[in-house]
Design a protein around this nucleic acid. Structure first.
Length: 572
RNA sequence: GGGCCCGUAGCUCAACUGGUUAGAGCAGAGCGCUCAUAACGCUUUGGUUGGGGGUUCGAGUCCCUCCGGGCCUACCA
């Protein structure tokens, strides 16, 4: 049977992620992975923290911690939050792992041997006061074009002109404000992706089913200006995968590390190896997911990411894999997302604007967030988070349509028949119509989930919930029971089976609620509904259950008001 | 500057390669039900598809233009 490999873009290490980050990669990847597992596929769902790079060093310095310690701590924080949101990773790794160091160095050697890496001498700005080379955007100065005094070394935010640090008037370090900057010559390794441009271009051309967002970004980079450019893949930092190591076929890279965007995607592979290590499995256990010479040919590989990550996943990472000359599995589908905005503006990590993962779990159970985020995922355009919208979705969809359905069925049964599935009655055209309706919804839901169309899948799921309420209203067992108790029993039995069906279908979106529904039904049968009529007979007469407490509470107007004020800006 | 995306009902969104009268959910109005979390069901009011021009038997969909919003532009990740 085909296997599904799912990776989520790696969340960066420098702090708790906001809901926009979550909905752009990890959460939809989780829903997809859960769905595929539910359908019976063998799934490997991989994520990790992305721990290298300048921002990590700066965040550690700000926290007054050694960078390794800082990353270890934040990794645990992010891991805990992922669990809190029910993200069902098979492994949540770290790009700073030994596995990733070894594999990153391995790829670099292979690329060098094949002529896709070369050392290049560059001039860079060194800050003596900071004791380090400064990336262009960490240099500030006055824009030579418009006179804006806080222009960055790569671009002036005021007049948008492209700059180099040496063009800035009175340049200074954005870190310390130091002005004793000097130009130093330094050598770096470059990934010669320009040599692979045509191969990548041809490969992208075969991906006609990818989102426009994905391919248009890739094509832009491939064809804009002089086409795909070579890229420096080393940096003058302490924290990262060392670029000089035993067996390196070059010299002079002492004190340098690989660029974070070189090693981060490799961590997808390394994290799978970390998974194998953690389970005491051999090399073949992870290689069958990644090496086409070790069985990965029947793997379908899907990546989830925000649109800002697309260039690295469509160009530089494929270039790394292709240039290695080794049989690595390449991505089959890239699902990319637009941005989620917060109440009329952008979520901002630096400004603390918006709702962050830790805040969210403090306010409401994860299912509430999962439902809103997934049913409003920014698939076709940027989407907007508002508290009113969250309130409306949670109260109406979860509490009223689904939660109340479970409540009315289980409590009615308890009061009239006791807490066991009642026996008797025979199906009528009413049940046949319900089955028809559900069969259509289930097939549509499958189609949308397989296409990773989360909003549409959520709509089909909700429609299936609504069908239960429509059925109950028409069947009206509270009236039937007065004249035909056996028929009322059939209607209630149908309702109880609908609860189980909803638990199975809803699990990718609201796993905790699904688990509670199944627990209340004393049921462990999570089998996917192939035929709706079979699915509605899963719980036989006599099967006992326990009517659950309300599955969802409602969000009050007072809470909405309080939260809007609290999260307007200036977090912590 | 260049490129890409978007603009559809009060709100959030649909509408396969152009094809009947532009559809849902929420909000609003009316009716019904009373098992259930004052929940549910049925009916219903809202649109000159951002403006203008063009192609076509036919345009939300294609072309031009203008307005508005967003993203990217390679050293943040």
């Amino acid at each position: 049977m085909a296997r599904i490999l799912v990776t989520s873009a790696l969340p960066y290490i420098n702090g708790v992620k906001h809901l926009g980050n979550l909905v752009g990669s990890q959460l939809p990847a989780d829903a997809y992975a859960r769905y595929m597992r539910g359908r019976g596929f063998e799934v490997m769902f991989i994520c990790a923290t992305d721990e290298h790079g300048t921002p990590a060093e700066l965040a550690a310095a700000k926290a007054g911690q050694p960078v390794a310690e800082y990353c270890a701590e934040l990794h645990e924080v992010q891991k805990g939050l992922a669990e809190g949101f029910g993200l069902s990773f098979d492994h949540f790794g770290r790009s700073s792992s030994a596995r990733n160091r070894d594999l990153t160095q391995h790829f670099a050697v292979r690329l060098f041997e094949n002529g896709y890496i070369e050392p290049v001498a560059e001039q860079q700005i060194y800050s003596k006061a900071d004791g380090r080379f400064l990336p262009d955007r960490y240099i500030e100065g006055t824009c030579p074009n418009c006179g804006y005094e806080r222009a960055r070394g790569d671009q002036c935010e005021n007049c948008t002109i492209q700059l180099t640090p040496r063009e800035l008037v009175s340049p200074r370090s954005a870190l310390s404000g130091a002005t004793d900057l000097e130009v130093r010559e330094t050598r770096h390794l470059h990934l010669r992706q320009s040599l692979l441009k045509d191969d990548i271009d041809a490969w992208i051309d075969t991906k006609t089913d990818w989102p426009v967002l994905t391919t248009s970004i890739a094509k832009k980079w491939l064809h804009d200006g002089d086409g795909l450019q070579d890229r420096g893949i080393t940096r003058d930092l302490d924290w990262g995968v060392p670029a000089q190591f035993d067996g390196a076929p070059w010299s002079g890279m002492d004190g340098k590390v690989f660029y974070v965007w070189f090693d981060a995607p490799i961590e997808y592979i390394s994290a799978t190896a970390e998974w194998a290590d953690a389970h005491g499995l051999g090399e073949d256990a992870w290689q069958r997911w990644w090496r086409t010479d070790a069985g990965a040919d029947d793997v379908t590989y899907v990546q989830f990411m925000g649109k800002d990550n697309v260039p690295f996943h469509t160009l530089s990472f494929p270039a790394t894999l292709m240039g290695s000359g080794e049989p690595w599995k390449r991505v089959d589908y890239i699902k990319s997302f637009n941005y989620l905005n917060y109440d009329g503006g952008q979520f901002s990590t630096s400004q603390g604007r918006g709702v962050f993962m830790d805040d969210a779990l403090e306010l409401l159970p994860s299912d509430y967030w999962r439902w809103w985020l997934l049913s409003h995922a920014p698939e076709s355009a940027d989407a907007e988070f508002t508290w009113e919208n969250l309130q409306a979705s949670v109260n109406k969809d979860l509490a009223d349509v689904l939660g109340n359905f479970v409540s009315r069925v289980t409590k009615f049964c308890r009061s009239k028949f006791g807490e066991a599935v009642p026996e008797g009655g025979a199906a009528t055209p009413l049940e046949a119509a319900l089955i028809d309706e559900l069969a259509g919804r289930i097939r549509a839901y499958e189609t949308q989930m397989e296409a990773m169309a989360l909003r549409k899948a959520a709509f089909e799921l909700r429609s299936a919930w609504v069908a239960g309420n429509e059925y109950l209203q028409e069947a009206a067992p509270w009236a039937t029971i007065k004249t035909d108790p056996a028929q009322a029993a059939l209607q209630v039995r149908t309702g109880l089976n609908l609860v189980r069906l909803y638990a199975v279908l809803s699990q990718p979106f609201i796993p905790d609620a699904s688990a509670r529904m199944m627990a209340a039904l004393h049921c462990i049968d999570w089998s996917w509904p192939g035929d709706a009529d079979v699915a509605l007979a899963a719980l036989p007469p006599g099967h006992d259950f326990a009517a659950p407490e309300n599955l969802f509470r409602k969000i009050t107007d007072d809470e909405v008001e309080a939260w809007r004020t609290r999260f307007a800006g200036g977090r912590g």
